[in-house]
Amino acid sequence: MTINLMDVVGRISYKCDILFRVIDIKEENGRKKVVLYGEDFRLIADAPYEDLLLIDQMKRMELTQEFRSLEEQSFRLFKQDIDLLKQRQEYDTTEGYKMKVNYFQLPGRVLHIDGDPSYLKKCLSLYEKIGIPVTGIHCNEKEMPQRISHLIEYYRPDILVITGHDAYSKSKGAIGDINAYRHSKFFVQTVREARKRIPNLDQLVIFAGACQSHFESLIHAGANFASSPSRVNIHALDPVYIVAKISFTPFMERINVWDVLRNTLTGEKGLGGIETKGILRTGMPFHSENQK
């Protein structure tokens, strides 16, 4: 069996519990070592070449069926939440449906910076499906602190997502040591640079982190929401669900953290945050191009 770059594999020692893409193959001390990115989780891992099993298309479909089902369930629940928010907003705007009002809504604009182009593509597709204005930028995690200031100035987002891949390694230090994490320190530095430009937590809402990220450091650096309180893996699409809830909540309302987390795929073990104001603004009148 030959394993090549971009093949989908599982780790035999972990009973192939997570599917990974092969990102790099290198040789150390006469042994091949492989760098892996999670297919559904924002996890980065190293593994010996001989510990990997190539997963064919049929097996992939079988193993990912459960995740697709969870994604669909999460999206349905989330869509119900958004529909209720819109109905309530319509009720308030029309004074209980007593007035006929032509109004428009401006959801929060998102700048999503992702260390993984494949995950970014999946997220952008979901943003579009939900109806959120978004700009997606692929950027290596280590380069994010240097680029974030310019990107904020250029795109002027209401919501900033800083994510990619991460992992905690017990062999590199205690769970509280940020140097024991693959990319947490870069996410933290990026949040700090963003807060130098826009310090107000409600003027720029920030989600930061990936699988097993150092949650406390990200929140202390200035993130409104972050991963991962229990150092568990988070799903690739979880940041989108959090951002969408914020984007469609009226700016005069504060968001209960549990309301944001309850329809994510990972829940409170993988995601957390602080009380935050919504972003949505309603305006009037609305004139379509077809109106005279």
Score class of each variant (00 low, 15 high):
Ile18Met: 13
Arg231Asn: 15
Arg68Phe: 05
Ala194Ser: 14
Val240Trp: 13
Ala194Cys: 04
Asn140Tyr: 14
Glu39Gln: 07
Tyr181Met: 13
Leu111Arg: 05
Asp81Pro: 07
Gly10Trp: 04
Tyr97Ala: 07
Lys196Glu: 08
Thr282Met: 04
Ser247Thr: 00
Ile23Lys: 15
Ser230Val: 06
Arg88Ile: 01
Glu128Pro: 03
Gln73Gly: 05
Pro250Asp: 05
Leu77Cys: 08
Ile23Thr: 08
Thr282Asn: 02
Val101Tyr: 02
Asn290Ile: 13
Glu193Cys: 09
Thr190Asn: 14
Ile246Pro: 00
Ile55Thr: 02
Leu151Arg: 00
Leu151Thr: 12
Ile198Ser: 03
Thr94Asn: 09
Arg254Gln: 07
Tyr181Ala: 10
Pro133Arg: 10
Asn290His: 15
Leu160Ala: 00
Gly164Asp: 07
Arg197Gly: 08
Lys15Glu: 15
Thr266Glu: 10
Gly131Tyr: 04
Tyr91Cys: 02
Asp83Asn: 03
Ile132Phe: 01
Gln89Arg: 03
Asn4Arg: 15
Asp259Thr: 11
Tyr91Asp: 04
Phe207Leu: 05
Phe75Ile: 09
Tyr91Gln: 04
Val205Thr: 09
Asn290Arg: 15
Asp177Ser: 13
Val22His: 12
Leu261Met: 06
Ile242Pro: 00
Leu204Arg: 08
Arg21Asp: 10
Leu54Pro: 00
Ser230Leu: 09
Met6Ala: 10
Pro229Leu: 11
Ile55Pro: 04
Thr264Ser: 14
Arg88Lys: 09
Val260Phe: 04
Ser227Ile: 07
Pro229His: 06
Leu280Lys: 01
Ala210Asn: 14
Arg88Asn: 15
Thr2Gly: 06
